[in-house]
Design a protein around this nucleic acid. Structure first.
Length: 506
RNA sequence: GUCUUGUUAGCUCAGCUGGUAGAGCACGUCACUUUUAAUGAUGUGGCCGAUGGUUCGAAUCCAUCACAGGACACCA
């Protein structure tokens, strides 16, 4: 049974006892008239006042009891609301007859949510507190809180019961406030630039816009399968065809792949598309975006991340092929030779999947020798066309695309390019992706004829970019697991029967 | 998917080469009207993640499974 724990039973008994005394353990008529943060701000003048108290002021605050210190006929408790925590002095003789002994001391405990009225004063130890003259239980907690000093450290409980994590760990609340700010500032930045926020489908007939395995779901009325989107890209470009010139979408993508410190099956990204611009303009707006974020979040441009220090005032730019030799230390004479690249990778004890083309092999070299060395923000440009099925070819070199990825702290943060708007070229790229799929690459891009059709009506020259919000928040909050920046990260079910639900239904 | 570490009271953790379970917090009782993780006294609290095995005897050793953390692989 869910409430068979003895501590919970004990608390349920207290709840019943309170009810029998005419006290509603889940009262609804809160009279709170200030937050704890405001209370502390307004009353900190008492430190400079004779007697360090003002019995003419009166405030009602509420919050969850975090600490409970009884000393005979008086007690100190610490309550916490979203804005902060406050010490309350509760003395027997300032409360109605019998309340202190029979209700407060016996039946109120840590975890309960209470409302306290009284006047501000500073204790002998110098802490601004509230001297209680009224005390009311708002919500009884029948489960006990975790240990008051160590709190809750077990990561599994922290992720599965995020509410407990939020109750016990103030910096977790801080991380998620920063996340919320980042999303809000991102939205504001693009709106101020004249972009239009749009919503495109989450359920796609064809999972396109990225190379990834999709989740499948079923539409009963139409008797067809739908894919949870892996990227919004192809729909946003259709809007550019339609005549919108600057659009963005901040939302979830879903990818049916492994989970680890930087991958969750659902993750948040912003994608934006900007007509009559190129990837050069995207480099500029990306720098501007980071400046905007850092200004509004009051972050220093020199930001610690684990053992690293990232200089956000030092944006670098280097073409991919050049980075292989200058940063990765790959010999310059091999980077255009498939056989030599394979031999080089093998000499480093790295196995290569058979059948990779030159662009893919260059990508392998980059992943292996360059990516993790890019600590300060670095735009890697001029990606091989084979690994960029949606990007526009360079006008001067048909083997490379007008594309960049932004790397920070050894991780990909953004992917951007001048969009391919030649429908015939796009068709050809899709066709070569189909070939790749047939030769075993199950994450190659799908054919999307409707998208080709859209392009055939003419899409203005456009630049588009995606930024991974989760990884960005990780950087800004110095968190090293994506689970620590997701309120409810994906977790395996605890019980086997939940795990094999689908098999039983079949 | 592979390797590795963990899973003991509500929480944080001990428990050595196998001998029948321990602390702190929390909770109960008592004392205490300015404490700061309050304090002092005292008490309650456990299917030692699950299932098998070895053994006279298993929290402890072995195997399998589940979940989690970390690393690697995959994810261009």
């Amino acid at each position: 049974m869910i409430f068979d724990n003895k501590f919970i039973q004990q608390r349920i008994e207290k709840t019943e006892l309170l009810k029998s005394m005419g006290i509603n353990p889940y009262a609804n008529d809160s009279k709170r008239n200030t937050t704890i943060e405001k209370y502390i701000n307004v009353n900190s003048d008492l430190f400079g006042i004779e007697g360090k108290r003002d019995e003419h002021r009166h405030y009602v605050v509420s919050g969850r009891i975090k600490l409970f210190r009884v000393m005979g006929k008086a007690s100190f408790i610490e309550i916490e609301d979203e804005s902060g925590s406050l010490q309350i002095y509760v003395a027997r003789d300032n409360l109605p007859e019998g309340f202190y002994n029979d209700v407060f001391k016996k039946n109120i405990e840590t975890g309960d949510i209470v409302e306290v009225g009284g006047y501000p004063f500073v204790t002998g130890q110098g802490e601004l507190s509230l001297h209680a003259s009224s005390f009311k239980l708002l919500t009884k907690a029948i489960s006990p809180l975790p240990e008051k000093f160590h709190g809750i450290t077990d990561k599994e409980i922290r992720y599965r019961k995020r509410y407990l994590d939020l109750i016990m760990n103030a910096d977790v609340r801080k991380t998620f406030k920063i996340r919320s700010n980042v999303i809000s500032l991102t939205r504001r930045f693009f709106e101020e630039k004249g972009f239009l926020e749009v919503e495109t489908p989450m359920m796609h007939p064809i999972a396109g816009g990225a190379n990834a395995k999709p989740f499948v779901t079923h539409h009963n009325a139409l008797k067809i399968d739908r894919y949870l989107r892996i990227a919004p890209e192809l729909y946003l470009k259709r809007l550019i065809v339609g005549g919108f010139e600057a659009v963005f979408e901040i939302n979830r993508n879903f990818r049916n792949e492994g989970m680890d410190a930087t991958h969750n099956p659902e993750f948040t990204s912003i994608e934006f598309y900007w007509a009559y611009k190129t990837y050069r303009d995207l480099i500029l707006i990306t720098k501007e975006y980071f400046t905007y974020l850092f200004d509004h979040l009051n972050l220093p441009t020199l930001l610690p991340y684990g053992d690293m220090e990232i200089n956000f005032a030092n944006f670098q730019e280097i073409p991919l092929i050049e980075s292989l030799t200058t940063i990765g230390g790959v010999p310059a004479d091999i980077v255009y030779d498939k056989e030599k690249i394979i031999a080089f990778l093998n000499s480093k004890n790295l196995t290569v999947k058979p059948g990779l083309n030159l662009g893919q092999l260059q990508g392998e070299l980059f992943d292996e020798f360059v990516e993790e060395k890019l600590i300060d923000p670095t735009f890697i440009t001029e990606y091989p066309v084979e690994i960029s099925p949606l990007a526009r070819r360079s006008d001067t070199n048909p083997d490379i695309t007008e594309r960049f990825e932004l790397f920070i702290a050894g991780r990909e943060i953004a992917n951007a390019f001048s969009e391919l708007n030649d429908p015939v070229d796009q068709l050809g790229r899709f066709e070569s992706q189909i070939e790749a799929k047939e030769s075993g690459d199950d994450e190659a891009h799908e054919m999307d004829e409707d998208f080709i059709d859209a392009l055939s009506y003419g899409m203005a020259p456009t630049a588009g970019q995606g930024i991974g919000i989760d990884r960005l928040v990780m950087l800004l909050t110095n968190e090293h697991s994506i689970r620590d920046v997701l309120l409810f990260p994906a977790m395996k079910p605890l019980h086997k029967d939940e795990l094999h639900q689908d098999e039983e239904e079949e």
